[in-house]
Amino acid sequence: MHIVVCMKQVPDSGQIRVHPVTNTIMRQGVPTIINPYDLFALEQALQLRDKLGGTITMLTMGPQMAEDSLRKAMAFGADRAVLLTDRFFAGSDTLATSFALATAIRKVGDTWGKPDIVFTGKQTIDGDTAQVGPGIAKRLDLHQLTYVAKIAEIDLAGRSITVERRAEGGVQVLRTQLPCLITMLEGTNSIRRGSMADTLRAARAEVVKWSAADAGIEDLTKCGLRGSPTVVKRVFAPTAREEKAHLIDTTGLGTDQIAQALMTEVLTRVPAIEGDLQRAAASY
């Protein structure tokens, strides 16, 4: 079985600061991490390989430094890694990203065998759209399984796969045919510690680097800014609320009196809830 995992290196957005005057992102010194959602996908891929054998190819589109993340993925146990890197990809939105990744996955298939499953994370923490997965599926004509919480069954001989998918208001149990694309839900597992052997291998292993041309992309107008239908026109900081919270004066009050004061204030400001709660209390 051949599994491709799409993984992105992202800035650790918890540590991003916004310049208070210019409203621009201060990226200097912000560490990069593997998009946390992609690790759920990688761990799921590793578990499938443990059970069914096969190989895992990691794929990232990003700058040269994304090599670090790919090496880390190999230390977790992935077999090989491909970095798709080219200045033509700069400024890609989700449509351009899914075009580049889909073309590269085709090339991965030509080089190491057609993938049975392509995994992506549910979403990235920087782009945060959850669109790239469905985009790749559509472009490669793969059966699309999003928000997968669990892979219930794979029948390699019959080429079928059964998953539990988080739907609105419930869980959908879906069966489809391989090859398919799965976007993995968070909280499904947590990434293993890499073995010593894998850590050593990852340090030495080659990260395959492809330019747009290497990946077989002929039409560069579908890449980067030019291939992106969406345009970001304005970036700005959220406006603060005019007035701050009204703080209840607690001087000299005990805890119970504070609670009384708070309750009274709440019921004055949202009178509607009193009726709701009375009805609810009556039905206890």
């Binding site: 449509l95 945060d128 992106s228």
Partner: peptide, 23 residues
């Protein structure tokens, strides 16, 4: 932007090759 809406919107936008702003 539910699990259904996001699943559908991504596919539709890619098929139509148009832009999609999430969330």
């Amino acid at each position: 932007a539910t699990t259904l809406g996001r699943d559908l919107a991504g596919s539709v936008a890619t098929t139509l090759l148009t832009g999609l702003t999430a969330d």
